[in-house]
Amino acid sequence: MNEQPTILVTGVNGQVGYELLRSLQGLGRVVGLDRAALDLADLNRVREIVRAAKPSIIVNPAAYTAVDKAETDEASAQRLNAEAPGVLAEEAKRCGAALIHYSTDYVFDGTKYTPYVETDAVNPQNVYGKTKLAGEQAIAASGCAHLILRTSWVYGRRGKNFLLTMLKLGAERPELRIVADQIGAPTWSRTIADATSHIVTQGLAANNAGWWAQRSGIYHFTASGSTSWHGFAEVIFASALGERAPKTVPIPAADYPVPAKRPANSRLMLDKLSETFGLYMPAWDDALRLCLSD
């Protein structure tokens, strides 16, 4: 009888972590840790937890995601987004585990006119993006087998995200002004979790540490297609509120100032993901309708 693998998942109360617990079930012994069980800010505790669990795979969706707050709380963002992933990677290397880590479109400056590929030059424009890039670099430097999955515009039915904000405001106001000159791919947290599970299934079926090492690197990992925040909101309202939907007014980002600068173009090319793992991410609006019907 084969010994079942241990899959260690961080941040299981978050949008992606919550879905991962459900998507990974049946693939092994899933050890899900919330912030109370594992505060990533405590780096010594991170080492202790990993060494005690002896995982085959570590999946790390936990992060500092308050993009605007990070501008005045850089130390916390650096600890959670850069230092903690680096320690997870060092411990993965020590115990022979593979590390799956999530990063962001915000590592790019958004000035490119076409979708970004994994090898494009990075140039983050805010603290969140800079700390997430530092996390990518720390993982790569560790030498562990790793997949860094860059996603974008994550939403779901839990936590704080654009979908839930729009549903709340749309029920309260007759008109909303929404940014229309930033383009990206809204990505459902369940899409992220399910696609991750498909990759984990392949890796476990291979039952070969070399499988992970051969595929180590960065992958773009979003829903397919793209829209603006305004376009995202319009589909939310049409699908969820129908005739009760508020009027939406498209505005430039300059009319909605926020502390952290966002990229105008957040589109990410998905070819490497499909070529390597045979995964074809769903259209963003199809996934959104599934989420709303859930």
Rank of each mutant, 00 (worst) to 15 (best):
Q4L: 14
Q4D: 13
L8R: 01
V9T: 13
T10H: 00
G11T: 03
Q15P: 10
Q15T: 15
L27E: 07
V31F: 01
D34W: 00
A36M: 07
A37R: 11
D39F: 12
A53T: 14
V59T: 02
P61A: 00
P61T: 01
A62T: 02
A62F: 07
A62I: 05
V67D: 04
D68A: 08
D68G: 08
D73H: 11
E74P: 00
A77E: 03
Q78E: 11
Q78V: 00
L80S: 06
E83F: 09
P85E: 09
A92M: 06
R94C: 15
G96C: 07
G96L: 05
L99K: 01
L99Y: 06
H101E: 07
S103W: 00
F108E: 01
G110I: 03
G110N: 02
T111K: 12
T119A: 09
D120T: 11
D120H: 08
V122K: 10
N126W: 06
Y128L: 12
K130M: 14
A134H: 00
Q137I: 03
A138P: 01
A138D: 00
A141V: 00
A141I: 00
G143Q: 05
G143M: 07
C144E: 05
A145T: 01
L147G: 06
Y155H: 11
G156P: 11
K160W: 12
K160S: 13
M166V: 08
G170A: 15
E175K: 15
I178S: 09
V179N: 06
P186N: 10
T191K: 03
I192T: 04
S197Y: 09
S197L: 09
I199C: 03
L204A: 05
A205F: 02
N207Y: 05
N208E: 15
N208Y: 11
N208M: 11
W212E: 02
W212F: 14
Q214N: 14
Q214G: 14
S216W: 03
Y219E: 10
T222N: 02
A223E: 02
S224H: 10
S224K: 11
H230V: 12
H230E: 11
H230W: 15
F232H: 11
F232L: 13
A233W: 08
F237Y: 13
G242L: 15
A245T: 04
A245H: 03
V249K: 03
V258P: 01
P263F: 14
S266Y: 01
R267Q: 14
K272C: 10
S274T: 15
D286P: 04
R289Y: 12
R289V: 15
L292W: 04
